[in-house]
Design a protein around this nucleic acid. Structure first.
Lengths: 213, 213
DNA sequence: AATTTTTGTATCTAAAAAGTATCAAAAAAA
DNA sequence: TTTTTTTGATACTTTTTAGATACAAAAATT
């Protein structure tokens, strides 16, 4: 389920958008000003941001810059007539815009389309994964993973926040029963090393592993 | 995603066009005069050029000639009434024209249509393919591909950016089921060699191949 | 603190996969 | 038909990957 952040200072509009998107299966957070927005972006992972330009605290452009730094797709919300804003927004890297007042259908269509355009990438702090090409980047640099490593990584991410026993991992990634070798440990070690995940993949002694979110 | 070059000296118009096209998923570069335009064409690969006739440095016609040398489709932007220009432009090989001031919808429709129409030539960095005659050029020089090689190349391009397993390739290009020979590898190797695609067609061990975009 | 258990990791080898040269069959062209 | 071109099978080489083992380090237990 994709998570969307709405940054918009008019609560009625937030409600409206939020309602429409929730009905379409999206998970919504919102911020009423830029500061809270930046904060939320930093603390959470969003798949898309809906951004009003006219914001209290700091304006939409700053937030846009921030969001693009995180490579999150952004749809700009602009008032009618604010052509300048739209141009500036798109030039700064916004991926689409929508003009107030807008139809909910249109918004949803644009959100769906943009997510489709973007969704082939999983982003974690420092790490980016292109699920289409299996390309993995660490701090912008390509890291080449073997298929097993890649599978393991995806499995860990899918189960991020859950404790995984070696048996579970072995069963899911290797399709094997109980084994009494260091295989799982070994591959986890390689992942940790290659991607600098020493502090993200936690070892729970006598229990298993945990990919922290 | 197609890349479009706008060559136009009035920034507001550039902004306007740029905005409209970006929102439709095109990637945009622009040049404010003919010199920069020629430069960009030389350095990058564009799928289409939007070209104003009245340009500083050298005029649109020169640039048009240059663009047509590269076989890139061109839409001319003309001011109202300049019938002469339109005729001249079309005679010189422009593929379409649009009259200022124009509706964004119209421009987008024309761009879409022209790109569709021109799709009989596929251009990649260094490589040009005429899908009508099946002629393939590498750095301007004809490279003769066998039918299988050609089919394979087209298939790869159509699926550029996606991982293709040997099974998929075999199924699509050979219309065969699972095989346990080096056939696919062999043909890939021949393509790589003939077209210098060693670094474009990636091998993903244990997975398949990837034509990088 | 000493011991035991568990986990981390370096090294090495087997095996799997991919690259490629060669050659013969099949298809197309002459 | 003969010749040429295209296709693909085979065999061999090189590269990559997976995983076992052994030992070190860390954690848990006594």
């Amino acid at each position: 389920m994709s998570k969307i952040l709405i940054v918009e200072d008019e609560m009625p509009i937030v409600d409206l958008i939020s309602m429409g998107l929730k009905a379409n299966g999206y998970k919504i957070d919102y911020a009423l000003d830029g500061e809270v927005g930046a904060d939320l972006i930093e603390k959470n992972h969003y798949d898309l941001i809906l951004l009003d330009i006219m914001l209290p605290k700091f304006d939409g452009y700053e937030l846009l810059e921030y969001a693009k730094g995180e490579q999150i797709p952004v749809i700009f919300i602009t008032a009618k007539g604010e052509l300048k804003d739209r141009v500036k927004g798109l030039n700064m890297g916004a991926d689409d815009y929508i003009v107030k007042p807008f139809e909910m259908e249109e918004l949803i269509a644009r959100v769906n389309s943009l997510l489709r355009r973007f969704k082939c990438t999983i982003s974690l702090p420092n790490i980016k994964i292109n699920t289409k090409t299996h390309e993995v980047q660490k701090e912008g640099l390509k890291v080449s993973l073997t298929p097993k490593e890649y599978d393991l990584l995806i499995y860990l991410i899918e189960n991020a926040g859950n404790i995984l026993t070696r048996e579970q991992i072995l069963a899911s990634v290797w399709d094997k029963e109980m084994e009494d070798t260091r295989t799982v440990d070994l591959h986890l070690a390689r992942l940790r090393k290659k991607l600098g995940l020493e502090n993200v993949i936690k070892t729970l002694p006598k229990v298993g592993y945990l990919f922290e979110v």
